[in-house]
């Protein structure tokens, strides 16, 4: 993830180190070079993996995307055909639509849930340290474990969720066996798993809101609802922005839970973009098409993130 705060950071003490000396130019240049080298050296440990495990594979994937390749045989150059095919392919369009469906369902759920828990755990209640830890537990649990547990919970005939629903007279849906409910099932599990992460970010934001603002508002006669909308939410906007950007980027790459819970089914009803990339590569032997789809997804996420970064001036409040 790129650092989103404005970056004026310098090495500690670096600002004062060379400038005070009234030395000849050459010396100034050499110390500037040494300074750049120092910076480069510090960046190297993260730059090298980035280069070899992200940048180079991306370029390689672009090269593959211009070919027809089944992973086993020789590659055949076909230019932009993969891209042309993907754009008109109903399967790809479906995968993008399902991914958007996932985000539209997931984001409000995880944000409002995270905010609610953060507000509750920011007040002086008993055992809040332990509760914060508990809510964070799913975040650090493996997706495979979480997905299997949710498959049990949401089992249409023996799951506890449908049993609970039956107690109040509701016939539970088929969840992951029903195309209409497979995506809601995935959204539910995902929101449950990630709500602790959103809570931690928002909790940190809440604790940075100065108490005086609330006191002043109280003196002016503002009630709790007014204080939430006029103080808390505006002061939280940088944290909110961070949560939304991150959730969107991760949301478009949703895969683990889909793979483990439904495998994209039934009848492709939960087929998302990355699952489609996986299937194209490893099930259908179409690595070229899969690489092209990876690039389309990358460009899609890039554009959406750029729009968000541009848009933040309108509503994000860096006090």
């Amino acid at each position: 993830m790129t650092v989103l705060e404005s970056s004026n950071s310098t090495l500690p003490g670096a600002a004062t180190y060379p400038t005070r000396m009234s030395s000849p130019r050459r010396r100034k240049a050499s110390s500037r070079l040494r300074y750049s080298l120092t910076v480069a050296l510090f960046l190297l440990p993260s730059a090298l993996p980035l280069l070899f495990f992200t940048i180079v594979p991306m370029i390689a994937a672009f090269w593959i995307s211009l070919h027809q390749w089944n992973l086993v045989g020789p590659m055949k150059w076909i230019g932009a055909d993969n891209y042309a095919r993907l754009i008109t392919d109903p399967g790809t369009q479906g995968a993008f639509l399902h991914t958007v469906y996932y985000i539209v369902g997931y984001l409000p759920l995880v944000y409002i849930g995270g905010l609610g828990i953060a507000l509750a755990l920011n007040s002086r209640i008993k055992a809040r340290g332990m509760l914060r830890g508990l809510y964070f537990l799913p975040v650090v649990t493996s997706w495979i474990v979480v997905a299997l547990v949710w498959r049990w919970l949401l089992n249409p005939s023996t799951g506890i969720v449908n049993w609970l629903l039956s107690l109040v007279g509701i016939a539970g849906p088929g969840w992951w066996t029903d195309p209409a409910w497979s995506m809601p099932a995935i959204i539910l599990a995902s929101a449950w798993k990630d709500v602790g992460f959103v809570m931690v970010i928002l909790l940190a934001g809440l604790q940075a809101v100065p108490e005086e603002l609330y006191e002043a508002a109280k003196v002016d006669g503002a009630g709790p609802v007014r204080r939430l909308f006029s103080i808390t939410l505006p002061m939280l906007s940088p944290s909110t922005f961070f949560v939304i950007v991150l959730s969107l980027i991760n949301g478009f790459q949703v895969f683990d839970q889909v793979y483990a819970m439904t495998g994209g089914g039934p009848n492709n009803s939960s087929q998302v973009v990355v699952q489609q990339i996986y299937d194209l590569t490893f099930r259908y032997g179409r690595a070229g098409e899969a690489s092209a789809l990876s690039w389309l997804l990358f460009l899609f996420i890039l554009v959406i993130t750029l729009v968000q970064v541009r848009g933040q001036k309108k509503w994000v409040n860096y006090a």
């Binding site: 992200t54 990630d194 991760n250 790459q253 895969f255 990355v274 690595a287 990876s294």
Partner: peptide
């Protein structure tokens, strides 16, 4: 919210190399 970079990309590179 674990980051899942496009797994296919890395694998594809490994394949080429």
């Amino acid at each position: 919210m674990n980051k899942k970079p496009l797994a296919a990309l890395g694998l594809a590179l490994a394949a080429i190399l």
